[in-house]
Design a protein around this nucleic acid. Structure first.
Lengths: 356, 356
DNA sequence: ATGAAAGCGCTAACAC
DNA sequence: GTGTTAGCGCTTTCAT
């Protein structure tokens, strides 16, 4: 025999707008008007009564009901391929801050470098009716069917394109039939090339590459930039080691690099995170950085700042990226036209590449 | 004059359950039964028709409507004080994975070490009617009013309590009147003490402390453990430097430590992230680790693995924490009773503390 | 096994 | 300036 639920049981039913209206002695609509600051004006007297009732009851509007009525969840989604990578973490923070300013809540999800997970997350976001999605995909051409069907705008963030050479913030417009997505990123190729040029200006003639791989299998623009910088100087490309975009990947790449017959005098590394692992491997082998091997990394993440030695790196303008991506997401794209916005990078010169 | 919206305008209204029902020639209820696998059985023939219609229309259920009807958003919230800290990132990943297994979506938010933001986020989560919240607060006693009023369960994660000494996974029960929250964490005090004991076993007699501060101003259990380890060995405590839980904080702490008249031969650092900054400062000063100064950190985050030298650290069992926190959140607490679950830590011995 | 219908809590158009 | 009310899309009980 179960105890009869006492009338004032602890399963206190949530306070609704109608409760507030009743207590304030006004109609439910007025409560809405007060809560939302519109769309209709409310007399000061009533407004006061409503606010008072809200406080007394501890009323908080139900976001699900609001979303249903509004047809908008006021949430934006973001998928990164590795939330544990400080670079993505800093990008996510910048996006979240930009979104919060506009009244949006950011749903951050981590695909953990798994395509299956990425797809699952996209479906989930589509079901939750996010108002837009930022996608840092491992794929050059991610599968956006679910989003298109649900009519959810997407912007690809930190995206590697072959067009990625640019001076000042560049905008590339595609036609509507292009079937591409909006994307914002930095000039991967340009940034890498500049880093290599800097190494060359230090007198390096034998410059290796540690490169991560995106799932698509296409050539990463950073690799193109590295190659271009070397070629433009009339030099011969150093060894290329491919490894995952992780610290461990960088570490293994370092070991592999040192095992090669001819060791370069400098390396360009495709991410800070890999560079951290690389530095560790170098130290373990008793090498000095930059004397025995100069290192130039990419991303400009917070973790590049306190390595030993501190990392010279190609910095991405994270705030600008976030701001621009948000605008691209929220602005209605006229005629389904697609845009690619590319920001220039900035060289941060620190100890790992030698004296500048 | 505005163009008349063409009937087949591109603002394709979202496909609803009723559309599916119509096309399948069944009632809307049947569609629900199929989608949710219940609560009522459906004939194979109809099920097939419904599935077919769903595919044809590209129907995806509206989560907001579902949440409204169900009274549950099937979302869990998590607030960390610094999403850019690899330790929290790894904790968040573990929680997300555990939640996903149970069909929950995790909403991850970053209070960015700001109490105001923390409060804003809590309000936001309460409004969104998350089914529960994981909170890594900077406060010993965070303000949970909003959540209590909304009847949302909370578990404090990675929480420093004075009770934090434990052998095997310990459970501490509090009465209902205790007004505490459920919390799960590790034995801060014990872990710190063990690290100090290890340093002492290496012959260190002068052991300093680099300690982060929580906003509450109360003594962190790690500091107590450090002190205890030293005292138990009959030694005198080394210098204490207080600094934020960041790489930069650790870096400054390192500089400050070296400026002191008497330099210790070893330090215990309250987080890996601070230790990274500390190592950088030490190298910049030309010191060798561990020969000139041995370092023992706390957290066991992924970033401790590839520093130079690699960090000896007190590892938190992140997966266990996540799993347990999830269960604590989802399990109905009988009679409003509150529990604190404390896991033991594990020493990871690497190069930074000297040969073991 | 299936259909009809009553909400879930909110927004905003419409009528006063 | 305020009240009334028709949805938003879904879950689920109650008939059938």
């Amino acid at each position: 025999m179960v105890a009869m639920p006492h009338p004032t049981s602890h399963a206190k039913a949530a306070v609704t707008r109608d409760d507030v209206a009743r207590l304030a002695g006004v109609s439910p609509a007025v409560v809405s008007y007060v809560v939302n600051g519109g769309p209709r004006p409310v007399s000061p007297a009533n407004e006061a009564k409503v606010r008072q009732a809200i406080r007394a009851l501890g009323y908080r509007p139900n976001a699900a009901a609001r979303a249903l009525a509004l047809g908008s969840s006021e949430m934006l989604g973001m998928i990164v391929s590795d939330a544990m990578n400080p670079f993505f973490a800093s990008l996510a923070r910048a996006v979240e801050n930009a979104a919060a300013e506009r009244g949006y809540t950011l749903l951050l999800a981590d695909s953990q470098a798994s395509l299956r997970t990425e797809r699952r997350l996209i479906k989930n976001f589509a079901a939750r009716r996010v108002d837009g999605l930022f996608l840092c995909s491992m794929l050059i051409e991610p599968d956006l069917m679910d989003l298109e069907q649900a009519d959810i705008p997407v912007v690809l963030l930190n995206h590697s394109t072959d067009l990625a050479t640019a001076g000042s913030p560049a905008v590339i417009k595609h036609g509507a039939g292009d079937h591409g997505s909006n994307s914002v990123g930095v000039a991967f190729q340009d940034g890498a090339r500049t880093a290599v040029e800097h190494l060359i200006s230090h007198g390096h003639e034998h410059i290796g590459l540690v490169m991560g791989g995106n799932a698509g299998g296409e050539l990463d623009a950073r690799e193109v930039g590295w190659h271009q910088g070397i070629q433009d100087a009339g030099l011969t490309p150093g060894p290329i080691v491919r490894a995952p975009f992780t610290r461990e990947g960088g570490h293994r790449a370092g070991q592999e690099l040192l095992a090669r017959a001819e060791r370069p005098t400098a390396v360009f590394v495709s991410s800070d995170q890999q560079a951290v692992g690389l530095l560790c491997a170098l130290h373990e082998a008793g090498l000095r950085v930059p004397e025995d091997l100069a290192v130039f990394a990419f991303d400009g993440s917070p973790e590049s700042e306190y390595t030993w030695p501190r990392l010279s790196t190609v910095a991405q303008p994270v705030k600008d990226l976030a701001q621009t991506a948000l605008e691209a997401l929220l602005a209605p794209t006229p005629g389904g036209e697609t845009q690619t916005k590319i920001f220039p990078t900035e060289l941060i010169l620190r100890a790992s590449c030698g004296q500048h």
